[in-house]
């Protein structure tokens, strides 16, 4: 993975494969603390402790009957390389929260990349899921909530091409605004 937004896409895909119907994605950039954090919280099927261990380290076991993906280890590695780390909290039957944090000024921190593409891809492929994407940068923040969007769109599906295009522009403009823009 070349950018953090691709990791986000990959981690959220895990949530969806675990049957999540609600996924909250929160990215926080804190200049004072020199911290960037990414949190993906879902209401999917969750995992027991043993499975969580295996998900973090795919070579923890030689068991072969179930496939364990590389998505979490890749994110964990990216976090460690940038002075951070990764935790997973999971309750079987309730859901999973993956949290990764990074030293914002670290030379090996991957760029955040294109969150507009990541979110529009997720909504296009999973219109039935409710996504909340919140991005905080110091004292500014914005969020996108597909539940609110659906209420306004009524009979128009949230994955309609015009809506997907709007989501992409909405996120781009709001991120530009967070990253400078108008005072």
């Amino acid at each position: 993975m070349k950018e953090l937004s691709l990791h986000v896409l990959d981690i959220v895909e895990n949530s969806l494969r675990a049957g999540a119907t609600e996924v909250e994605i929160k990215i926080v950039e804190d200049s004072e603390e020199d911290l960037l954090s990414i949190e993906v919280k879902d209401n999917g099927s969750g995992m027991d402790e043993e499975t969580v261990k295996k998900v973090i380290d795919p070579f923890f076991t030689t068991r072969t009957e179930r496939k364990v993906g590389l998505g979490i280890p890749l994110l964990s590695q990216a976090a460690k390389a940038a002075g951070g780390g990764l935790t997973i909290e999971s309750i079987p039957g309730h859901g999973t929260t993956v949290r990764a944090w990074f030293q914002k000024s670290h030379i090996d921190l991957q760029p955040l990349g294109d969150m507009a593409k990541t979110m529009s891809a997720l909504v296009a492929l999973h219109p039935e899921v409710d996504f909340v994407y919140t991005h905080v940068k110091d004292d500014r923040e914005f969020s996108l909530n597909t539940k609110d969007m659906k209420a306004r769109l009524q009979e128009i599906p949230v994955n309609h091409p015009l809506v997907i295009d709007w989501i992409s522009k909405f996120i781009k403009e709001n991120l530009d605004n967070l990253n400078g823009g108008a005072e």
């Binding site: 609110d148 969007m149 306004r152 769109l153 009524q154 009979e155 128009i156 309609h160 015009l162 809506v163 709007w166 522009k169 909405f170 403009e173 709001n174 605004n177 823009g181 108008a182």
Partner: peptide
């Protein structure tokens, strides 16, 4: 000058456009 940021209210307009195109 502060630029006008996209807001969710715009979805009303999108809805009108989409209704014409929807299959």
């Amino acid at each position: 000058m502060m630029a006008v940021i996209k807001s969710i209210e715009e979805l009303e307009k999108i809805r009108e456009q989409a209704r014409e195109l929807i299959n």
